[in-house]
Computed example of a mutant assay.
Amino acid sequence: MSMKPLVGDKKAWLGRRGRIRIWNRHSWQARFSLAISRSFFYAALLIVVFTIACAIVPGWIAPYSPTEMLTDAILQAPSIAHLFGTDYFGRDIFSVVVYGSRDSLLIGFASVLVGGLAGSALGIISGYIGGIVDSIIMRAVDILMAVPGVLLALSVAAALGPGLLNIALAVAVASIPGYARVMRGQVMSVKGLPFITATRSLGGSNTRIFWRHVLPHSLSPLLVMATLGVGTSILTGSGLSFLGLGVLKEIPDWGALLSQGRGYLTVAWWICTFPGLAITLFVLAVNLIGDDIRDRLDPKVNGAA
C-alpha cells in the first residue's frame, strides 16, 4: 500500500532539490571561472618563459643577426621571410626585438632586486623598531613619494648618464618608497598578532621573534609586489630609453626601438608596433602571474574558496 508523503516532507524534499540545483549551478560557474583563470595563467607563463628564452639564447630563436643590414629589403612590410618586417637599415625587426629583450629584462629584474631589497630593508627596520627610527625613515620615504616615480627615475638617470646599470639603478630608486611602505605596514601588522605577544611573554628574544616569526609572515606581500614590479620596471626603463636616456648600444632595447621607429610611423608602422606589442604582452603576462600569486597567498581568497 502506497502512502502519500506528508506536506512537510514534500516541502523539505523540494527544498533540498532546489539547493542541489543552486549548488550545481554555482559549482559549474566556479569550475568555468577557474578554467578561464588557469588558461590565462598558463598563457601568461608561456609568454614569460618564451621572453626569458629570447634573452638567454637569442641566437636559437632569431632568424637573422640583429646587426645584419639587408640592403635589398629596406622598410619591407611583414612577410614570411621577415615576420615583423624590416627597418630603415634593412634589419629584421623580429631578430632585433628578440636580441633587445635581454637589456629590457635585465633592467626589469635588476631594478626589482635592488629596489625590493633596499625598500624592504627600510620598511622592516622602520616597522619593527619603531619610535624615532620609524619617524626618520618614513619622513625620508615621504619625500621620495612626493616626487612622481617616472620623474624621480628620469632625474636619477639624467644625473648618472646613460647605461644599463644606471638605468636599472634609476628605476630601482623610484621603486624604493612603495616597497618600504608595504613592508612597514606588514611588519607592524604581524608584530601585533597575539602569537607574537605570547612568544615574547614566554621569554623569546626580539631577534628570535623577528627571524622566526615576523619576517617569514611578512614576505608574501613582498613576493607579489616584486612580481608585479617587474612589469612596471620594464615600462619605466623603456620610457627612459624612449627619451634617449637608456642603453646606448648597437643592439637597442625595446624602448630604444620605439624611439627609433617613431619617425617612420606613417611609412613603416611595424617598426614601432611590434616592439610595443612585446612590451605590452610581457607586462600583461607578468601582471597576470602576479595576480595569480596574490590570490594563492591571500588567506581571504583561499578561505572563501
Rank of each mutant, 00 (worst) to 15 (best):
L297T: 06
L46N: 01
F94M: 13
W254I: 02
A43C: 10
G161A: 00
F195Q: 05
D87N: 15
D103W: 07
L240G: 06
F274S: 02
P252I: 01
F242K: 00
A140Y: 11
A278E: 15
L228G: 13
I80L: 15
G237W: 00
V171T: 04
T67R: 01
A198H: 08
G204V: 02
D253C: 01
I279L: 14
L164N: 03
V141I: 15
R296T: 02
G18E: 14
V156D: 05
I80C: 09
G276K: 06
L75Q: 02
S155K: 02
R294G: 12
Q260V: 01
L169E: 11
C272Q: 05
N206L: 11
F210Q: 10
G246P: 01
L228R: 05
T86D: 06
D291Y: 03
A81Q: 10
R91N: 11
A170H: 04
W28P: 00
I209L: 13
V49T: 13
Q29H: 12
G108L: 06
V182N: 03
L235I: 11
G255S: 10
A62E: 06
G108M: 07
G246L: 03
N166W: 02
S65G: 14
I22D: 13
V267H: 12
T197M: 06
I271G: 03
F210E: 09
R102T: 10
V147I: 15
L257H: 03
S241K: 00
F89T: 05
V214M: 08
